[in-house]
């Protein structure tokens, strides 16, 4: 199963491409340490991208005001000289120690990395779809309730119920309408926070009688052996009705869950990774944790603290990646060698 030619080799594997993971690339890069980054989101920026792309951040040193999106773009520009490799839409599943230190890391997409060190910069954990609080929904999950569409074909000829009013709900309504035998879009109000073009296309399908759009919220499910048969839906006036369906796709945004981090054998306190504060190494030699995911006396969950943690971690990581080399501390302002790495000298 493990084909050596497909193994991706790198010095450092960074789990999480939020601001701290991105800036770690810079600090590692100055020390000639190459990095790959894995993130479950389909884009860089972490919470800055997912939770507050348009919101102002006021506490980045030297930058009085920047948006989450602006900070992400600036960091990407800053780390460009170091050629980081990104692996988006993937979640790191396992970390196996194969050296002292050296690790083999696998993702849920089947990728295999071999690296000297792992940096966990996973913030609040991984962003995963919100699960609606419908009693007994767990029993239907993966069989007839799906939070993501992996293969459209599995819905061919089925009666689909899509719940939600954002871009995911609208996009999948448009994509699955031609495949499903019947499709109902369920949303709590008339308005959508999706791309206007998608809303128009959806309303056109409703007008042509190809799909149904109904107002309400699912309160319970009926079915057996994981196969849903109908959803009980509450209208805004409190009355109930039923929608017969073979599959349900709820799209209510994302929430942060610790996920596989809990399985990596790291010492945790309240779901946060314990680190020592000289190098931000965890209880496992060669595995580091920076940013919101770590904890130590005095910890503050600030982006600027995560930057500092990345800088210190890089110093220790240098010893693991280049055990023979002595590290001389240098400033980017005055060091020609650092400036060459940055492509400015």
């Amino acid at each position: 199963m493990l084909d050596a030619t497909n193994v991706i080799k790198t010095d450092a594997l960074i789990i999480g491409a939020g601001p701290c993971g991105l800036f770690a690339v810079f600090e590692l890069g100055l020390l000639d340490i190459k990095a790959h980054l894995v993130d479950i989101l389909d884009k860089p920026g972490g919470q800055c991208a997912e939770l507050y792309p348009e919101k102002p951040i006021y506490d980045i040193p030297g930058i009085p005001l920047v948006t989450g999106d602006g900070l992400t773009k600036a960091l990407l520009e800053q780390i460009k000289p170091f050629g980081p490799q990104f692996h988006f839409g993937e979640m790191v599943q396992t970390i196996e120690r194969i050296g002292d230190p050296e690790f083999r890391v696998t993702t849920d997409a089947g990728k295999v990395f071999e690296c000297k060190v792992v940096i966990v910069a996973a913030g609040g954990g991984s962003f995963q779809p919100k699960r609606p609080p419908i009693p007994g929904i767990e029993a239907y999950e993966a069989k007839s309730v799906h939070y993501a569409v992996r293969q459209m074909e599995q819905f061919r000829g089925k009666r689909l119920l899509i719940a939600g009013g954002g871009d995911s709900a609208l996009d999948w309504t448009l994509n699955l309408a031609p495949i499903a035998s019947h499709l109902t879009l369920l949303h709590r109000r008339q308005e959508f926070r999706a791309a206007p073009d998608s809303v128009n296309k959806m309303m056109a399908l409703v007008g042509e009688g190809k799909i149904d759009f109904v107002l309400g919220q699912v309160t319970s499910l009926e079915g057996s052996d994981g196969q849903v048969s109908k959803a009980i839906v509450k209208r805004n006036d409190g009355s109930n009705f039923e929608i017969a369906c073979d599959a349900i796709l709820p799209f209510f945004g994302l929430t942060m869950k610790l996920g596989p981090v809990a399985n990596w054998g790291l010492k945790l306190t309240d779901d946060l990774i314990e680190v020592e504060t000289a190098s931000f190494e965890t209880s496992e030699k060669g595995i580091f944790a920076i940013g919101d995911i770590n904890t130590y006396p005095g910890k503050l969950k600030l982006i600027l603290c995560g930057f500092h943690e990345g800088a210190l971690a890089a110093q220790k990581i240098h010893r693991y990646v280049y055990p023979e080399k002595k590290l001389t501390f240098q400033y980017t302002t005055s060091s020609t060698s650092l400036q060459k790495k940055l492509g400015v000298a």
């Binding site: 919100k130 609606p132 609080p133 939600g164 009013g165 954002g166 949303h187 709590r188 109000r189 308005e191 926070r193 919220q217 309160t219 805004n236 209510f252 945004g253």
Partner: peptide, 13 residues
């Protein structure tokens, strides 16, 4: 806020 409530459950008046 109205748009964000689309991601909540059992939304009432």
């Amino acid at each position: 806020e109205e748009e964000q409530l689309d991601n909540a459950y059992d939304v009432r008046a």
